[in-house]
């Protein structure tokens, strides 16, 4: 692989100190760049202004959702969209998430389903990727090249292209409306395998493994005791990416679930959205807004909490840094 992780060679005293040091270094580099190229203050101001504009473009829709989750249906349509208005009904809207509106289903149940699918699927995908990535990184065996070529070929075939084929098989073997029909295919993550292979090559030195072997450690012991701890940042990235992938997946559940009680959030919200214009319920629009807000808050929070993993770690295959 073209880029090798440079971070592993220099063990740091503490992670926090390391991060602070890196931040300082980055700052110094930035100042150097500005001085070397003679960049004017005005350029910095203009570029920063463009960043602010794009940040607004990014945040405005989310702000609109947050603000309008406190409104009733009439005010969502009639009051000024970017400020609050009376009555302030956030709590009332929130309570509706526990009710079965229009007979379509209950939000809270969909939330539970999503957590289950994303949790099990994410853990499974991470485990399979860790094993597979480690196997492909450090071992050559008959068929390894072929198997790895398949991973690479599958890499760019999205789950959407597999969804209908899965549906045909499920219809045949009776996996329609079965939660495992959702969870098991989510565990197949070629991206995760590739990512872990790159990560293992960069962070688990072969010499270390060979040394442990000479000490008589078994392969499984080497993997669990030696390799896995070194793989944690990479594993976190894979877990994060697969959880988000499952959390966001809409096509697969849409195709394989016809029972409302099995829906994940995406499908439930999609159902409400498609019924909104025809629904007689006067709460359907506030419900859609608050439902969207409660859906995105956990995933955004997860990102903010774990961002040092995806920022420092590999986000995409060969660009590990």
């Amino acid at each position: 692989m073209s880029v090798i992780n440079p971070g592993v060679s220099a063990p740091s005293t503490t992670k926090a100190a390391e991060r602070a040091r890196r931040r300082e270094e980055r700052q110094r580099e930035a100042e150097q760049t500005i001085r070397i190229f003679g960049i004017r203050r005005r350029t910095v101001a203009i570029v920063t202004a463009l960043c602010v504009l794009f940040a607004l473009f990014t945040l405005v829709p989310i702000a609109w959702m947050l603000i309008n989750s406190t409104k009733n249906q009439a005010n969502i349509f009639e009051s000024f969209g970017f400020w609050f208005s009376r009555p302030f009904v956030l709590v009332h809207n929130f309570k509706m998430l526990f009710e079965n509106v229009d007979g379509d289903g209950t939000y809270i149940q969909w939330l539970g389903n999503t957590a289950l699918y994303a949790g099990l699927g994410g853990i499974g995908a991470t485990a399979l990727s860790a094993l597979g990535g480690y196997g492909f990184a450090h071992f050559k065996f008959r068929g390894s090249k072929l198997a790895f070529s398949l991973v690479l070929a599958a890499l760019l075939v999205p789950i959407a292209a597999i969804t209908l084929p899965l549906y045909f098989v499920y219809a045949k073997v009776g996996l329609i409306n079965n939660i495992w029909g959702m969870i098991l295919p989510s565990m197949v993550s070629p991206v995760g395998v590739l990512l872990m292979r790159v990560y293992v090559r960069g962070s688990v030195p072969r010499e270390l493994i060979d040394a442990a072997r000479l000490d008589g450690a078994s392969e499984s012991r080497i993997f669990f005791r030696l390799a896995v701890p070194l793989m944690v940042p990479g594993l976190t990235t894979v877990l994060l990416l697969s959880v988000v992938g499952i959390w966001n997946n809409y096509f697969l559940p849409l195709v394989i679930f016809s029972k409302n009680s099995l829906y994940p959030l995406t499908e439930g919200l999609g159902l409400w959205a498609s019924h909104a214009s025809t629904s007689g319920d006067q709460n359907i629009y506030p419900l859609l807004v608050i439902g969207g807000v409660v859906t995105i808050i956990p995933s955004i929070a997860l990102f903010l909490i774990l961002q040092r993993y995806w920022r420092g770690g590999a986000l995409l295959g060969s660009f590990a840094n």
């Binding site: 980055r26 930035a30 500005i34 960043c51 945040l59 989310i62 995406t266 999609g270 959205a273 995933s299």
Partner: peptide, 28 residues
């Protein structure tokens, strides 16, 4: 290059939509 100020904060903000499901983004 560090030309924009508060680069780290902007990077985080720009990345937020990735955590928003396409269904929610579309409804929004």
């Amino acid at each position: 290059l560090g030309i924009a100020k508060w680069g780290g904060a902007f990077r985080t903000i720009f990345f937020i939509p990735f955590a928003v499901p396409a269904v929610v983004a579309s409804v929004m």
